[in-house]
Design a protein around this nucleic acid. Structure first.
Length: 415
RNA sequence: CGGGGCGUAGUGUAACGGUAGCAUAUGUGCUUUGGGAGCACACAGUCCGGGUUCAAAUCCCGGCGCCCCGACCA
């Protein structure tokens, strides 16, 4: 991609209406655009990151047997009345609208109800179970207070997986698999070190549900870390009743601000019984399907990555979700230098390296500043200076020093 | 929903009730080219609706919008 052709530009100044790091840097870099409070559009650079996050999630969901589907955003009122979740007194975050005929509709804030109804068409025997489906889809929640950029919006992307099992044992077995898949996802997107499996309230037949909480300075949640196994945490909500680590029994000692990047729930038979999703066991008895739900907000994950991985100059993307693999910069207006950079760009593309090539007629300083802001993990500089030694400058975004490499050494890095 | 702050060119900021200024971005020309280059010229603005006043960006009322703290967050 030629940067001179990129549809977006960077901004020198931080937007005055954004305080959070993620919103500030993503806006300045041209990744996102705020339409209104809590509602963001994703621009080409932002979509590249989001797509990579989504694909990592897809791979891990597919690996545990998930099958992707895509449900509608418009929701049928009568269906939600069956579970008593239509009323504004029960669910106060609905966005509701009407058909021309006057019938009420809602914009989905979650999808247990519609999916349970769909599965009534497809599950009737124990032989149909277990089955696992997921989607990456837009959710609408009329939050009283949107905040912190991508961290809490009114319209946002969610990956939601739903499990349908014969019994509690089968459900709990899958629940553990999902928990492991989630750990892998957060490791792969670069949040592994700061993300804790966190015990929280809820779950229909187990004592806890689990949240995945990433420690960030301005997080809206608070968790207590375990001093023993140092791998799990407890949500502040259940701190009073759970003062020791549920995993190893050690004291919980550090209180940290965090953001909930994922959660997993045992739903039991609440939805299957309300909506009528039953199956016949091998003795012909009718039984309700046991369900679970598993959520991750890809946009929130993107914001969290920025919060965790940035410095005073800009974003520092992990390789797994970066919009481009390499930022190639040409410095100087010597014809030969430009030609060399053009050639390098073509050669890298041929080697399937995803390159953003800053071919603009701009000063070196501006190119470096933009490069630091956009945060691509590897920068290659071609300049009159380095070409005198027949070398290229190779620098990682998260390191201060660069090294000089000749072309062969450079390509060694992209095998 | 309670509390606080704010709304001025595309963006970021100034202006006691009395000529709306600066920076940046953009355009043109010339000069520059390793950390957001220089000069010149040009383009471009007071959220909306009322009110007070000779005069309102400024004061008052209402609305809309944005941020932050808290409450809330299956």
């Amino acid at each position: 991609m030629l940067q001179s052709k990129l549809s977006t530009k960077t901004k020198r100044e931080a937007p005055k209406d954004e305080m959070s790091k993620n919103a500030e840097l993503l806006t300045r870099g041209g990744f996102i655009f705020k339409e209104m409070a809590g509602v963001y559009s994703f621009l080409p650079l932002g979509l590249r990151v989001l797509t990579k996050i989504n694909n990592i999630i897809r791979e891990e969901m597919d690996a545990i047997g998930g099958q992707e589907l895509f449900l509608s955003a418009l929701q049928d009122k009568s269906l939600w009345e069956q579970t008593n979740r239509w009323s504004d007194e029960v669910v106060d975050i609905w966005f509701k609208t009407k058909l021309k005929s006057g019938s009420e509709l809602g914009l989905g804030f979650t999808h247990e109800e519609p999916l349970t109804r769909i599965m009534k068409d497809h599950i009737s025997s124990y032989k149909d179970l277990p089955t696992f489906v997921y989607q990456i889809q837009t959710k609408f929640r009329n939050e009283v207070r949107a905040r912190s950029g991508l961290m809490r919006g009114r319209e946002f992307l969610m990956k939601d997986l739903y499990s349908f099992c014969k019994d509690k044992e089968e459900q709990e077995n899958f629940y553990e698999k999902a928990k492991d898949a989630y750990k892998k996802i957060f490791e792969r997107v670069g949040l592994g070190e700061k993300t804790y499996v966190t015990f929280a309230s809820g779950g229909s037949f187990s004592k806890y549900s689990h949240e995945f909480q990433t420690i960030i300075p301005n997080g809206e949640d608070e968790i207590y870390l375990c001093g023993g196994c140092k791998k799990v945490a407890v949500n502040k909500d259940i701190w009073e009743e759970q003062k020791k680590c549920p995993e190893c029994g050690s004291e919980l000692y550090t209180e940290e601000k965090s953001v909930e990047v994922g959660n997993i729930f045992n739903l039991g038979t609440k939805f299957s019984e309300s909506i009528g999703l039953f199956y016949k066991d091998n003795e012909g008895n009718s039984k309700p399907v046991v369900m679970g739900s598993y959520g991750i907000g890809p946009g929130r994950v993107m914001g969290t990555i920025v919060e965790v991985m940035c410095d005073e100059k800009g974003i520092v993307w992990p390789e797994s979700v970066t919009p481009f693999d390499v930022h190639l910069i040409v410095v100087g207006d010597d014809e030969k230098t430009k030609k060399t950079a053009d050639n390098l760009y073509e050669e890298l593309k041929q080697k399937k390296v995803d390159v953003l090539y800053d071919d603009r007629e701009a000063s070196a300083g501006q190119k470096f500043a933009d490069s630091d802001l956009i945060g691509i993990p590897v920068r290659i500089v071609v300049s009159d200076k380095t070409l005198k030694e027949n070398k290229f400058e190779f620098k990682k975004r998260n390191e201060n020093k660069f090294i000089l490499l000749n072309k062969n050494e450079l390509f060694e890095r992209f095998k």
